[in-house]
Every structure is written in structure tokens, then in C-alpha cells.
């Protein structure tokens, strides 16, 4: 029953998205423009600053994530569908997980476009270790979205949601961003030190577990009027 609800919520979001492709296009475009701004700012005389690529990749993911989160729930708000979803006799945590997976999927799709772009513009060997990069990006995105989904859902009713979402989201997710940046930067070293990468990955998984547990636990009381 739980997984069925998760699947239904996820499928609903994906269907809406596949039909309009609004969030996917705008998010990707926004992320690309972020990267371009950084490219103009940080590439001097054809030489990018050292270790810049990792930070830029994560800043772009975080910014694009905020945009996608705001947009996803704005769509729910306009059609009053979130209320309908919450009124439905379904597990609240299942609704949360469904929304979370939808946003993680969206951000991963955006990251798929971003990684080659960053690798190209900043001459970074990002794609040398695809497995590790994929695990870092996935765990990092999951941690970021876990907090983001909870707060974006809660902010649906607030008047100042556009301002408050980043204000709330960034201080809390800073550890995830730091761990993601450090892990990615470790991947870019000429000689790969797997111990460092593994350490930051383990930390990312820790954050994921803490954030997802906290969010699942509090989603129900937080979303009840």
C-alpha cells in the first residue's frame, strides 16, 4: 500500500512533467545559465581557477533545485491539488516519498546535462570516475531534496514562500553541499584518493539518513492544519 501510493504520486508528477516539460526545461536552462555566469566570472585568460568545477557544479545543482522545488509546489498550489492529495486516504509519508523521488529524478536529469557542461567549460576530468560521481551526485541530491521537499510543501500556504524557501533551505543543507563539493573535488585530483572520496560519501549517506528520517517523521504533524 505504501509503495503503491509512492508510485501513484510519483507517476502523477512525472506524467504532468512529461506533458508540459516546463520544470525540466526551465530548471536545466537556469542551471546552464548559472554555470555560464560562473564561467565568465572565474575563467581568467582561458584558465579556470583550481578546484572551481566541483563548487560550481554543486552551486548550480542547489540553485536549480530551489527553482524546481518552488515550481513543483507552485503548480500544486495553483490547482489546489496538494490539498486534494492530503485529503486522500493515503499515508502522509508515502506522499512525501513520492514527491521526493519526483524531485530527485528531475534534479538528476538536470545534473546529467550539467556535468558534461561543467567538465567542458572548466576543463575538469569529471567523467573519469563515473561510478563515484554518480553516487556522490545521487546522495547529495537526495539529501538536498529531502529537506527541500519538506519545506517547500510546508511553505505552500505561506505568503512569502518564494523568499523563505532559500532562506530556510540553504543553512540546513550547507553540510550536504560541503560534503558534495569536497567529494567531487577529491575526484578531480590527479591521483585519486579513494579513502577521502569514501569518507565524504559516507558522510553524505549519514546526512541522507538523518534528513529523510526527520522529514518522514515530521511530515505528518507539519502538514496537518
Amino acid at each position: 500500500m505504501f509503495f503503491r501510493t509512492v508510485w501513484l504520486v510519483l507517476r502523477k508528477d512525472l506524467t504532468v512533467e512529461v506533458r508540459s516539460r516546463e520544470i525540466a526545461y526551465t530548471t536545466l536552462f537556469f542551471a546552464v545559465s548559472c554555470v555560464l555566469v560562473f564561467a565568465f566570472a572565474l575563467v581568467k585568460e582561458g584558465r579556470p581557477i583550481e578546484d572551481g568545477a566541483a563548487g560550481i557544479l554543486w552551486i548550480a545543482i542547489a540553485f536549480a533545485g530551489t527553482l524546481a522545488l518552488g515550481r513543483t509546489f507552485e503548480r500544486e498550489r495553483q490547482a489546489e491539488t496538494l490539498r486534494a492529495l492530503l485529503l486522500a486516504p493515503a499515508d502522509r509519508p508515502a506522499i512525501y516519498v513520492g514527491k521526493l523521488l519526483g524531485i530527485v529524478g528531475l534534479l538528476l536529469a538536470a545534473a546529467l546535462g550539467l556535468v558534461p557542461l561543467v567538465a567542458l567549460l572548466f576543463q575538469a576530468p569529471l567523467l573519469d570516475h563515473p561510478f563515484w560521481l554518480a553516487s556522490i551526485v545521487t546522495t547529495g541530491t537526495l539529501g538536498f531534496s529531502a529537506v527541500g521537499t519538506l519545506f517547500a510543501a510546508m511553505l505552500v500556504r505561506a505568503r512569502t514562500r518564494d523568499v523563505l524557501l532559500p532562506v530556510l533551505l540553504y543553512p540546513i543543507t550547507v553540510p550536504v553541499i560541503i560534503a558534495g563539493v569536497r567529494a567531487t573535488a577529491a575526484l578531480l585530483e590527479p591521483e585519486l584518493d579513494l579513502a577521502i572520496v569514501r569518507f565524504w560519501c559516507a558522510l553524505l549517506i549519514c546526512f541522507d539518513v538523518v534528513f529523510v528520517t526527520l522529514a518522514l517523521w515530521t511530515f505528518e504533524p507539519l502538514m496537518t492544519d
Binding site: F151, R157, A158, L168
Partner: peptide, 13 residues
């Protein structure tokens, strides 16, 4: 600045 419902939002934070 959260408006109505900000008590729960803040509690989550």
C-alpha cells in the same frame, strides 16, 4: 514573515 501557519514551519526548522 511566515504569516499564518509559520509556527509549525518554524518548529520543523
Amino acid at each position: 514573515y511566515g504569516g499564518p501557519g509559520s509556527d509549525k514551519l518554524a518548529a520543523g526548522l
